[in-house]
């Protein structure tokens, strides 16, 4: 015979002060958070700027800028919502939800991250102005040849452990252009130029963050144990508890099949969407809704009730309380 859902036997009403419970809870939590705040404070790692990045790692900065210019950078070929590339487009089977909204935040890395920011500098440095003019007037094949020559020299400089780069003549205008961009970055100009909008007020950091999102941030994040492969989503900078409640979400990124999939993020979304639906709809899911009956922890929570109302005492009285 099927067990009924709720214990039908009438329960005695016991005086209970709900408001007192809430007030005591407020006092307990107040003491808790004030104590923790006074003793431990809270983390505040200063943000990274393009200026600090370009001063600390000028060659990594040049690699980033070259990738933006020649289209080999991650954002240059990212795909929606930034552009029409396909480098970071994720699929679920044959469907790509990522492609449906299209390009809503257009980013052309060569134009937005290199050529446009060079314009102010070009007005005061004729060498930069003529380099940009030469580059713009060249064929795609010529540009690629310059970029390749520059990239080879840059790779060699990085390998040799050099701290600066003497661009080869074969790199043509790319040498003075990227040298100019590095100079602009190191005096703090690029931070502002990537942020400036024609509407004066700025609240959108898409461009500077997309510029920094690659090697620049990963190098710093890995020293702080924030990488995705380090369960980083749960972690906080410094010795602080992080977002422990994201443990299940970040767990999936530790599964090699998902971590190595080009559509890993989309897969995790699907898994979490299903699990979230299960959580929300537990009351109506057969099996799951009876799970606590089997776990039996309820016998502990209501142990006094069961002791005082043994099942053997007889069937429930039909009369109400």
């Amino acid at each position: 015979m099927r067990q009924p859902d709720v214990d039908p036997r009438p329960a005695r009403a016991v005086p209970y002060d709900l408001l007192r419970e809430v007030l005591v809870a407020f006092c307990v939590v107040l003491v808790l958070v004030v104590t923790m705040s006074a003793v431990f404070g809270s983390p505040d790692d200063p943000p990274m700027t393009i200026e600090s990045f370009s001063r600390q790692s000028p060659l990594v900065f040049l690699q980033t800028a070259l990738g933006d210019l020649d289209g080999s950078g991650e954002i240059a070929s990212y795909g929606p919502p930034y552009n029409s590339g396909d480098g970071s487009v994720q699929h679920l089977g044959p469907v790509s939800l990522q492609e449906i909204p299209g390009v809503t935040i257009p980013i052309n890395t060569a134009q937005d991250f290199v050529l446009s920011p060079l314009q102010p500098l070009a007005t005061v440095q004729p060498a930069v102005a003529s380099a940009v003019r030469t580059f713009r007037g060249a064929t795609a094949a010529q540009r690629q040849a310059w970029e390749k020559a520059y990239g080879d020299a840059l790779d060699a400089a990085v390998k040799s452990g050099a701290s600066s780069l003497q661009a080869p003549a074969a790199a043509g205008p790319v040498g003075p252009m990227l040298a100019g961009l590095l100079h602009e970055a190191q005096i703090g100009g690029l931070d502002g130029l990537l942020l400036t909008s024609s509407r004066f007020y700025a609240t959108d950091y898409t461009k500077p963050l997309l510029f920094l999102q690659g090697a620049a941030m990963h190098n710093r994040a890995s020293t702080l144990n924030l990488l995705g492969t380090q369960w980083g989503m749960m972690n906080e900078t410094g010795s602080y508890p992080g977002q422990a409640w994201l443990w299940l979400y970040t767990f999936w990124y530790q599964v090699p099949a998902i971590a190595n999939s080009p559509s890993g993020d989309a897969l995790v979304w699907v898994i979490m969407a299903v699990l979230t639906l299960l959580l929300v709809l537990v009351p109506w899911i057969p099996g799951l809704r009876r799970l606590p009956f089997k776990i039996g922890l309820y016998r502990w929570i209501w142990r006094d009730w069961y002791r005082e109302h043994p099942a053997a005492a007889g069937p429930p009285p039909r009369a109400g309380p």
Partner: peptide, 22 residues
């Protein structure tokens, strides 16, 4: 499984408080 010490402490305290609550 990789977890920071502060997170481990928080989760440990959660389990302890839950057990005490019961």
């Amino acid at each position: 499984f990789l977890i920071s010490v502060p997170n481990l402490i928080v989760i440990g305290v959660m389990v302890a408080v839950f057990a005490l609550g019961i």
